[in-house]
Computed example of a mutant assay.
Amino acid sequence: MAMRSPLPIRDGVGATRLHVPLSGPWPTVSAYMVERFFHLDPEHLRERFDRGEIVAFDGSALTRDTALGAEEFVWYYREPPVEVDIPFDVEILHQDDDLLVVDKPHFLPTTPAGKYLQNSALVRLRRELDNPDLAPVHRLDRATAGLLMFSTRPQTRGAYQMLFQARAIEKVYEAVSARPEGWEDRFPLTVRLHIEKLRAQVCVDVDLAREPNSETLIELIDADERVIHTLLRPHTGKMHQLRVHLASIGAGILHDNLYPILTDEKPDDHERPLQLLARELRFVDPLSGQQREFVTRRTLRYAPGRADRF
């Protein structure tokens, strides 16, 4: 069972939980955190203890002198970064007492991460709907646009999460890639690879010697002299699976800065979004037993036939 935060949602953002070692070379919890967050000003961090902003499981404030070992977990609010605005809106497609389905734009993360806090789908929707209990039941990469599902209340959240864990939900994506050689005779094509995310690595590893743990059916929608437009039906949900699978057949997704080649991070270019779209979701609702189907209203800008794409 998830550990409940002693701090409430604030401005749509939940408190951060930090695991603190019960023993080690640090005399106090604050000393550990100063070393753990070495990139921050140490005195500013200690002052946060003085202001009672670092709390224990029961909500009581720790001091800068709280001994190491007194608490295994502490909670605090992240200090909001100076965020670059993401000038695209989340569109609500469906809302009921238990489920929210939205159309997420490119460039907007699903949840707060790194330098994005208020500019995340979760925080924007919590504030718009005044619902601190809102939580995603799956995720899309920041660069990917399309359908995203949220649970609106904790009591029924597990039922929707189980759909993804049991692979009881049909997901369909589409992508636009540079046209690979010999594409005419390649589709439909099923790609199977062993994908593994290693700690501290941005990209996943592909191990051709190991048993595949990811599978995607790739079908052709359209093509022209420059690109191919494909329909993707993933049967598993590994991290970056679709991006890796297309790159593995020489059809890396347009504007992908991770695959097949990791490039230096650059500011977002809103004219060149990753050409990957979560297009359809289908499942039997675990609460009502009814068939549900949702389809994105977004399109891929660089697909064949789009006059404004280049």
Rank of each mutant, 00 (worst) to 15 (best):
G69R: 02
V176G: 05
L246I: 11
K238D: 09
V82A: 15
D269Q: 01
V102Q: 08
N257R: 15
P188E: 07
E265Q: 10
A143V: 07
S288T: 15
V137N: 10
S30E: 06
A121Q: 03
I221P: 00
F88D: 06
V204F: 08
L189F: 05
G52Q: 12
D89R: 00
T236V: 15
N119A: 10
L122A: 07
H138A: 05
R186M: 14
S177E: 06
P267Y: 06
S288E: 09
Q290S: 14
E35K: 09
P180E: 07
V34Q: 12
Y116V: 04
H138P: 11
W183D: 07
E225H: 11
C203N: 04
D222M: 12
M1I: 08
S60I: 01
V123S: 05
V284T: 12
L220I: 09
Q118K: 00
R78V: 10
V13G: 05
F164Q: 04
V204W: 00
P260F: 05
E181C: 08
G305E: 10
P304F: 11
R48L: 02
A166S: 13
H94V: 00
A209P: 04
V55K: 07
R179P: 06
A143C: 08
A61M: 02
A143N: 03
E91W: 13
R279V: 04
I169H: 01
A67K: 02
I54K: 02
H39F: 14
T216N: 00
E196I: 06
L117A: 06
R179N: 08
D103P: 14
L134C: 12
E43S: 14
H94N: 14
S30G: 02
L274N: 01
